Amino acid sequence: MLNFELLATDADSHARRGRLTLNHGVVQTPIFMPVGTYGTVKGVMPRSLHDMNAQIILGNTFHLWMRPGLDVIKQFGGLHAFEQWNKPILTDSGGFQVWSLGQMRKITEEGVKFASPVNGDKLFLTPEVSMQIQTVLNSDIVMQFDECTPYLSVDPKSKGQITTEAQARSSMQLSLRWAERCRDEFARLSNPNALFGIVQGGMFEHLRDESLAGLEKLDFPGIAVGGLSVGEPKEDMLRILRHIGPKLPAHKPHYLMGVGTPEDLITGVQMGIDMFDCVMPTRNARNGTLFTRYGDLKIRNARHRSDPRPIDPSCTCYACAGSSGVSWNDGGREGFSRAYLHHLDRCGEMLGPMLTTVHNLHYYLTLMQEVRDALDAQRLGSFVQAFHTTRAQGA
């Protein structure tokens, strides 16, 4: 169901080079996983994902449960055939989406009661139900159902105060109890895939340690770090990542959930993270913010109105290099200009966000390929230094 091989390590950091074998294929790590909430990565054809060497994508348990519903997906034997993706898929548990409902949901020891945001039906999501949904989805990696510990308290009496140690402890311990129930239900269902546990504990290092210790006793085949990038200052996110990343079990894959910028990914790799996901490259693309080797670029800015250059002259994605796959730096001239992309954005043409999304995802996936190459060559330190220097140049 899962086999993780450690192929190389970095002498100067906690970075690892690995190979993860799942039921629907092999994933080379470190890896970025594009987010496909409703069974599709927004604005990207599945063929384009293959062309940019996406190895694994995400699906959203909560939203797919709402629409189209399990009865439909079950007819196809799972999410792979339904969305025509023959490589691995990871599905989240629904915990983050339930958390995002705020005061519209009620959390108990048994699970979470809430009204469907689609039709208002009263629903009850438990660890067992989450495992049952993800078994129907037949995702290669299943995430435990957890409570995402907020940065700001969900207690209406707190008036927006930062979550206290007691609140974070209670939330973390509930997630641990739910983790055990997920493990037991996953086994009862004879799910042939892999189940990951999630480290919680908010912004408190000792609670993160307690959560990890509890998950290690449950012996999940993979470990994720959750509850980061939920509104906390960047320095707090990095503090927790630097604390818990190096402590994750060396013989298992490590997944950092919902993070983040290219710089965050590089820091995560250095802290021993193998797998990343984030909506940032796709969401930012739709809003006109593009990631490049030379820094971030806002295509809506007037300075791009007549600029003949591509988004990134060194990029070989379809948006930058066209069908030739040859970057401008190497003499290619088939890509789309910044002027054209600026025009599409100003006119609201759907081709604009499609092209920018292809670029952003290509950049993230290429960055991870370059990290893997650097680890293979034992030169991660010099690569990271060059990465930061080049990103600071400005696009």
Rank of each mutant, 00 (worst) to 15 (best):
L2F: 09
N3F: 00
N3S: 06
F4L: 02
E5K: 07
L6F: 03
A8D: 11
A8Y: 06
D10S: 04
A11L: 14
H14L: 00
N23V: 00
P34W: 10
G36R: 08
T37L: 00
T40F: 01
V44M: 10
M45C: 11
H50T: 12
M52K: 05
L58V: 15
G59F: 06
F62R: 11
R67N: 15
R67Y: 14
R67H: 15
P68E: 08
G78D: 07
L79E: 05
H80E: 02
F82T: 05
E83F: 12
Q84C: 03
L90V: 11
S93W: 15
V98R: 09
S100E: 12
M104A: 08
R105K: 11
K106F: 11
K106M: 10
K106W: 04
T108S: 03
T108M: 03
F114M: 02
V118M: 06
L123N: 11
F124Q: 03
F124R: 01
P127V: 00
E128P: 12
E128A: 07
Q132G: 01
T135K: 10
T135C: 06
V136H: 08
L137I: 04
D140P: 02
D140M: 01
D140I: 02
V142D: 00
F145D: 06
C148I: 13
T149I: 11
P150Q: 09
Y151N: 14
Y151F: 12
V154S: 11
R169T: 13
R169Q: 15
R169K: 15
A179S: 13
A187C: 07
N191G: 09
N191W: 03
L195S: 01
V199Q: 05
E205W: 05
E210F: 00
S211D: 06
E216D: 01
E216V: 00
P221T: 02
V230R: 14
K234H: 13
M237K: 10
I240D: 09
L241F: 15
G245I: 06
L265P: 12
L265A: 11
G268C: 14
I273E: 13
F276D: 04
M280R: 12
A285L: 15
R286F: 04
L290Q: 14
Y294W: 03
R300Q: 11
A302T: 15
A302Q: 11
I311W: 12
T316F: 09
Y318N: 01
C320F: 00
C320M: 00
V326N: 02
S327I: 07
S327P: 02
S337I: 09
Y340P: 04
L341Y: 08
H342W: 15
R346Q: 15
R346W: 04
G348H: 02
M350A: 12
H362N: 11
T366H: 06
A377S: 13
Q378A: 09
V384Q: 05
A386D: 09
A386M: 07
